[in-house]
Design a protein around this nucleic acid. Sequence first.
DNA 1: AAGTCGTGGTC
DNA 2: TGACCAAGACT
Length: 377
Amino acid sequence: MPLLDAVPALRADLLAWWQANGRHWIPWKLGPDGHPPGAGESLDPWPIWSAEIMLQQTQLQVVLPYWRRWIEAFPTAAALAAASEHEVLMRWQGLGYYARARRLHHGARQLLDQPWPRTVEGWLAIPGVGRSTAGSILSSAFDLPHPILDGNVKRVLTRLTASPRPPARDAAGLWLLSTALLDPHRPRAFNQALMDLGSGVCTPRNPSCGVCPWQGHCAAYAAGDPHRYPVKEAPRELPFQVIGVGVVFNDAGQVLIDQRLNEGLLGGLWEFPGGKQEPGEAIETTIVRELREELAIEAQVGEQLITVDHAYSHKKLRFVVHLCQWQRGEPQPLASQQVRWVAPVELETYPFPAANARIIAALLAHLQSQASADQAA
DNA sequence: AAGTCGTGGTC
DNA sequence: TGACCAAGACT
């Protein structure tokens, strides 16, 4: 029997499973009374929009504490619009993909004094909102019939059809299937059920096919190899680079930090200055050279503070961090937005990426042990 | 349209 | 120096 003929049964079976087994506790999916909304009932789009942006390529359990603090700080879109970019990045610090925060910030300002969009086109006009996020917001907030296609849905659908192609090679087909399956009478419940199925049953490893409401329709289950889907692209090797980093002190005991450009990796966040080690170059030379090239200062490189290995999505870096002493030259933001001397205790008031947070922890520990050594002497 | 963009969980 | 991946969007 063709899959499309089974659509009514698929909808009914999924929704029945979800009624008993779904995640009915997700905070941004609850009404003001703390209970799930009835069919056709609307929810405040703001907490949902915030959550959907945070959830892009990020697991629910990681998002939850960030989202709670975020909504407490910014209860409305207008509150976010009124906030500074510094405060926005502080609230996003550690969550990754920082362009999401700046786009959400801009989107909130863009929507000021405008009614909430109720069309896909209206949401697509907002920075950071793509087709799947738009569908998720519209179905979650307004119970409107728009499909979604996130990682969970891709996995469920590629297994359901035993698709031989990686999802990126068949986006059009997957969107068609998500659209065809969507229950037009209960879009909010159906989309959430599809994601809950992918999250709790149709999992990447060791799927629980024994309790799956779609087992009888699943081509991958019939073939006995649901774990093979979705078919993966050939993985690429990640380049590895060593970065020399200077924690530069001045005579007042302050350290030098710079704010990265908004474009590119870690855009808008603060960091300790540094740069890529060139072939055959001693790391101390790298640090001296980068401080000259990017800040126009002369500094003396001292002892190593720490090395930090960190994997990003498309490269692996090793930060070799040395304590340095500023000698001369007013720091210039030649490769950054701005540079600043700050007392070590003030570092916590700036948004730093995760690798730099480890450097700060090592620095504070170093200063602590140094202070107690001085006291003993 | 392939490359870019983070981090932490989990095995 | 692990591999793999997660409620994707943007260029």
